[in-house]
């Protein structure tokens, strides 16, 4: 009896996960991007105004090379062991920040101040 309850709980967790994933994948893109390392905001960029360029971010534990091209951003290369951040590719969804866990680096869309102001007016 207990086991049936537990199976139902597991199934619920799974369904919640699937629903959440679909929701997260559909979150829209924004223009403003924050690059954080270990909780500190290193850069705030407005992608619609950035030209194509690459630059290097030195986090506490290593180096990530970040590329901005055509209003999109990605980690071009990194000297971390797992390379997950590089293989995540371009930042596509507001819900899916690019993370480099070995370096504690996060690239994520944020709510742009200018947009909030524009909406408020």
């Amino acid at each position: 009896m207990k086991i049936k309850v537990l199976i139902i709980v597991a199934a619920l967790i799974f369904v919640c996960g699937v629903a959440g994933s679909i929701w997260a994948l559909n979150a829209p893109r924004k223009n403003r991007v924050e690059i954080k390392s270990g909780g500190r905001v290193l850069y705030t960029l407005d992608l619609s105004r950035e030209g194509n360029r690459t630059f290097t971010v030195s986090a506490d534990k290593g180096v990530n090379v970040i590329e901005i091209r055509d209003g999109r951003i990605r980690v071009q290369s990194a000297d971390c062991a797992d390379q997950t951040c590089v293989r995540m590719g371009w930042l596509d969804s507001a819900a899916m920040p690019i993370v480099c866990l070995p370096h504690g680096l996060v690239i994520a869309y944020t709510d742009a101040d200018s947009e909030v102001d524009a909406l408020a007016q």
Binding site: V18, G20, S21, K36, G38, P97, V99, L101, L105, V106
Partner: peptide
């Protein structure tokens, strides 16, 4: 990961982790 990066938006990954965990 939340503690290390201090980024709450990482929680958006949690659903994916739940599915993959199951």
């Amino acid at each position: 990961a939340l503690l290390v990066t201090q980024t709450p938006s990482l929680l958006f990954y949690y659903p994916f982790l739940l599915v993959s965990g199951c």
